[in-house]
Computed example of a mutant assay.
Amino acid sequence: MIPSPIRKVYQGIADRRQMFRMFDRHSQRPNHPEVDATALYSGEWFEIGQVEYDYMLEILPPLWMRSGMFAMREFLTGSITSIFLTLTIDGRTRYFHGYCDLSDCSSPDRMCTAIVERESRPVKAMTREERLEHIWSNTHDDYRGYAGEREPEHLRGSRTVLFFGGQRGKVLKLLDQLTDAEVAAKLPVHLRYLPAIAA
């Protein structure tokens, strides 16, 4: 089994409303009930606050708990479930949510390692992929979707966002094909000019 890449999907600390939106940020995907979405969710993570962490701990008895980590009893899809983490990074206690594939018992520990490594960087920066994931996470469901029958077959199912193109009005664009200027326009001001992380 090849593990899914571990990736940050939201910049900043998600409040309760945003956290619940991101729990199923792929809910509009084509063939929702029929297609296994394990690869889509596995490895996604974002930061939450302590209040949200405590709230999720109290909802249901966890599937399992260990130091600084617990897993939700309800599975999202297949063997994918929510893992909630308490991590100390640079002397600060922080809280995170991630989706782990529990068919791989090392998945939660790999997620912890990846989050600490990503969040320990001395300079605040974002990769292009993180910028695109933040745009997807932050865009309301009415303004994002998936390429359908009008698109060439190889693009069907690709993520799309509605972009306001000046005189052209509203334009549906493939998320992966946004230009750097369009990405900057879609990001909140405080994230627009962060340097890119070297690949």
Rank of each mutant, 00 (worst) to 15 (best):
I80M: 00
Y99R: 10
E117G: 10
R110I: 00
M65H: 14
R118H: 09
A125G: 06
E117I: 11
A71N: 08
R121F: 03
A114V: 03
E153R: 13
R144P: 03
H154V: 12
M126P: 03
G148M: 07
H154M: 12
R156G: 00
S67W: 09
E58R: 12
N138I: 08
P108N: 04
Y99M: 13
P61G: 10
R92D: 11
P122Q: 10
G78V: 00
D141S: 09
T93Y: 08
T160M: 06
T139D: 02
V116M: 02
R131S: 03
S158D: 11
W64L: 14
P61W: 09
S106W: 07
H154S: 12
A114F: 04
Y146I: 05
L76F: 06
C112N: 10
L57K: 14
E130S: 02
C112V: 12
E117N: 13
C100I: 12
S103P: 06
L57G: 13
H140K: 13
R92H: 13
R73W: 11
V116K: 03
C100K: 03
M69K: 08
S82V: 09
P62M: 01
S137Q: 01
P61S: 15
E117T: 15
C100Y: 08
M126L: 15
L87P: 00
R128K: 02
A114T: 06
R128M: 01
H97M: 14
S106F: 04
G157K: 01
M65G: 12
C100H: 07
T127F: 04
G157A: 01
T81K: 06
A71L: 10
E133K: 11
D142C: 10
F84T: 05
T93G: 10
R144M: 04
H140W: 09
V116D: 01
L102C: 08
R156Q: 13
D90V: 08
H140E: 15
L57H: 14
A71D: 03
L85W: 04
A71T: 06
L57Q: 14
L85R: 01
E153Y: 13
C100V: 15
R144V: 00
G68N: 00
E149D: 15
E149W: 15
G68F: 00
D101L: 01
E151H: 08
M69F: 10
S82D: 13
M72L: 12
R144S: 04
R73G: 11
P108Q: 02
E119C: 09
M56N: 14
G148C: 05
M111K: 03
P108A: 05
S79A: 14
M56K: 09
F70D: 01
C105W: 14
E130R: 00
L132M: 06
M65W: 12
R150A: 14
W136A: 01
V123W: 11
R131P: 05
P152S: 00
G91Y: 03
S67H: 14
D109K: 10
F96W: 11
L57P: 05
H134A: 01
L63C: 11
